[in-house]
Design a protein around this nucleic acid. Structure first.
Lengths: 203, 203
DNA sequence: CGTTGTGAACAACTTCACAGCT
DNA sequence: AGCTGTGAAGTTGTTCACAACG
């Protein structure tokens, strides 16, 4: 319904609003533009896609706006997530403190290496990789984070799909194939570096 | 010159070609489509933006294509990078083995906490944060990775800019402001999660 | 009066269809 | 015959300009 670029911007805006909420009551589109780097015109266009943003006088009420964004973006409820692959990246994610306040609950970690599972100290329950489907289903996990080596990516994705997750964040450089009712976001460090290289080489 | 969406796809294609090079000699647009998830039409359109892709018979020579992509995307030369912020994410990045084969040399790490610098075991030289400008300039570092807490993001970015870096990968949730000759790529875990939530809530 | 909301104009990107090579 | 390369058509997203509103 909302086009993807709009979604991207609305999510960004909401995140930035959270810090802002402590400092101010209202904000107008040009101040938002200043903070987000998005043009004021685009911001107004984006925000008027939102359902149920009540009548406005001058600027948006930060509280109302946040609420409306949460509703429209489906960010109201807590989501359960798991990490697949407990190498350096995976375990860094395991101990990332930012998830909880944002409403994402780390419910499980998986790795093919059983030794690793014994060694890592964390409050998050850890399981061997072959239990991915079973445990994600049992724990009703919404999202999986793929932090495995590239050659294990598809297999792990299959298991997550089998376990009924609704979304996957893929840190692998592989392209994974999943049923189309599962959302995938690809995040690749190397891609980001290559993009920097490409961008600066044409300036 | 090349529009950004094209750049994104070309970079992705090049990364995927690297693994493929060991298995095959040539590949046609529809096979590439299969692998990358990009439509064959779009791939052909993208590739014909490239300068100096020699005459084709059936399919592209993977080797030629890779070479051409590297040239056109400015990926030929090695780039020097540094990590700012050596928390869990920062130190996971420090020991990520994928940079070197891709042509990115980790030349320095920085953190405001001097104890941390003593503790971390790595081959990469570590320095206190106040030396960022000085060391990045001395070492001729191309790119900086921002993995600091949100409230230190702008300050660190300023120091990197001062040190003459050409690009920054920003893992912070803050929006950083830099001179416009510096490229920035924002990578935010929370944003990715929010996007997953937003996407699935409208299916 | 300043700020929002929004149709209308514009620009960018993608898809299509097919001419041109090999 | 099959594949690439590419103008042209179609679609989507962005910017503009201004009417409507407190």
């Amino acid at each position: 319904m909302l086009p993807q670029p709009v979604l991207e911007r609305l999510c960004r805006i909401r995140i930035l609003l959270q810090e802002l909420a402590e400092k101010r009551e209202t904000i107008d589109s040009s101040a938002l533009a200043e903070i987000t780097g998005i043009s004021a015109n685009t911001i107004r266009k984006d925000l008027c896609h939102l359902q149920g943003l009540s009548g406005s006088k001058s600027g948006y009420s930060i509280k109302d706006l946040s609420t409306s964004l949460e509703k429209n973006l489906g960010l109201g409820t807590e989501k359960k997530v798991c990490v697949v692959g407990l190498g350096r990246l995976g375990s860094a994610i395991l101990s990332y403190p930012g998830f909880l306040p944002a409403g994402y609950l780390l419910k499980a970690g998986f790795d093919a290496d059983i030794n690793l599972i014994e060694i890592i100290r964390t409050d998050v329950p850890l399981f061997p990789a072959y239990q991915i489907s079973e445990q994600t289903r049992r724990l009703e996990i919404d999202f999986g984070i793929l932090a495995v080596p590239a050659d294990a990516a598809q297999k792990s994705a299959d298991r997550l799909a089998e376990g009924g997750v609704k979304g996957i964040i893929n840190f692998t450089s592989s392209v994974i194939r999943v049923p189309e009712n599962i959302a995938v976001r690809n995040v690749s460090f190397l891609h980001e570096f290559d993009m920097l290289s490409a961008i600066i080489s044409r300036m």
